[in-house]
Structures are given as structure tokens and as C-alpha cells.
Simulated assay, not measured.
Amino acid sequence: MPNRLTQTPPGTHQALKNTAFEILAVSWLMHDGWQVFLPILDHGHKTDILISDGPKYFRIQIKTVEARSDDHVVRNQWSESHVDYVVFFVRNSNWGVIAPAFEEAERPLNHQSHRRFNQTKNEFLKEFHKV
């Protein structure tokens, strides 16, 4: 079995983990039949994933957070970007939250309009269909 013999710088390692969560969401959405598009560059638009069912398109931002509980407060980093949904993956646990994009400066993860999911395809898709 191959062994990685070099150290990955901390910033690079975090970028790899964040990208892995984006790819996980892409995979789950594709399994559900969505057309998935990945912007070459999302600077300014805050769109990590663009999905379509044919006639409709939705912009999704993927965020990872360290959270000790579901009342963890997240900041709005996508104002004026036309994002439709934000998926928060809790990277130090095995759950996440799907949220309609909100206008407030910040909001707790356990807000009533958010859908919590365990980090599995079936759980994610079940909650995604409820937003």
C-alpha cells in the first residue's frame, strides 16, 4: 500500500478537506439525478455547485465549520451573491445542515428553517428534498 512521505502544509490540508466535502455533495446530488455544474472560479459569486433539474437552476455554497453543538452560530458570507442554499458540513463530527440562504449577518445552525442531516447520502438527500 502506498505511503505518503511528504508533509502537507496545514492550509493546503484544510483546502483538500473542504474540497472533499464539496465533492461528496456533488456525488450525492448526482446519485439523485441532478445535473451538477462546477464553476471554474467562484470568486465573488460564492457558488461552489450549480445544480439543475432541466428547467430550473439552483446555486449552492458549501461551508465547513467546527461546531460543538447544533446551536453553533454561522456567519453570512454570501450576501448579495444570489446563492439559493448553503450546506454546512460539521468537519469535527458526522452531521451537517442544509439551509436556505439567509439575509441576516449570522444565524445558529439549529434555526427552524435549516435541515440537519447525518453525513450519509440517504440522510442528506432526504433532508435536501425537504428544504
Rank of each mutant, 00 (worst) to 15 (best):
S52T: 15
W28C: 01
L50Y: 02
T47Q: 12
S27C: 03
T47G: 03
V26C: 13
F37W: 15
K46A: 12
L29E: 00
G11Y: 06
D53S: 13
H31G: 05
D32G: 08
F21K: 07
H45A: 09
K46I: 00
I49Y: 03
A25W: 00
S52D: 11
D53T: 00
K17F: 13
A20Y: 04
I51Q: 01
H31A: 11
L41W: 13
M30C: 09
H31R: 12
Q35L: 13
L16M: 15
T12W: 04
A15V: 07
P10A: 01
N18E: 15
I49S: 03
S27I: 05
G44T: 11
L41P: 08
H13R: 15
S52P: 00
L50G: 03
I23S: 09
L16H: 15
L24F: 07
D48P: 10
G11L: 11
L50P: 00
G44C: 05
G54W: 14
A20D: 09
A15D: 12
S27L: 04
L29S: 02
A25Q: 01
A20T: 07
G33H: 06
H31D: 10
I51T: 08
I49F: 03
E22K: 15
P10Y: 04
L24P: 04
T47I: 13
W28R: 01
H43I: 09
Q35C: 12
Q14R: 15
I49L: 07
V26A: 06
L24A: 13
G11F: 06
A20R: 06
H45K: 08
P39H: 05
H45V: 11
M30E: 07
L29R: 02
Q14L: 14
I49A: 02
L50D: 01
S27M: 02
A20H: 06
G33Q: 10
P39D: 04
K17A: 09
K46P: 01
L38S: 10
H31T: 11
W34I: 01
P39F: 05
G33C: 08
V36W: 06
L50A: 10
L41I: 10
N18M: 09
P10G: 03
S27Q: 06
F37C: 09
D53Q: 08
N18Q: 14
H31M: 10
A15E: 12
T19A: 14
T19H: 14
I49T: 00
I23T: 13
N18I: 03
T19S: 14
L29Q: 01
H13F: 13
G44N: 06
P39C: 07
G44P: 02
A15L: 12
D42Q: 09
V26E: 09
V36Q: 04
W34Y: 08
N18G: 14
D48G: 05
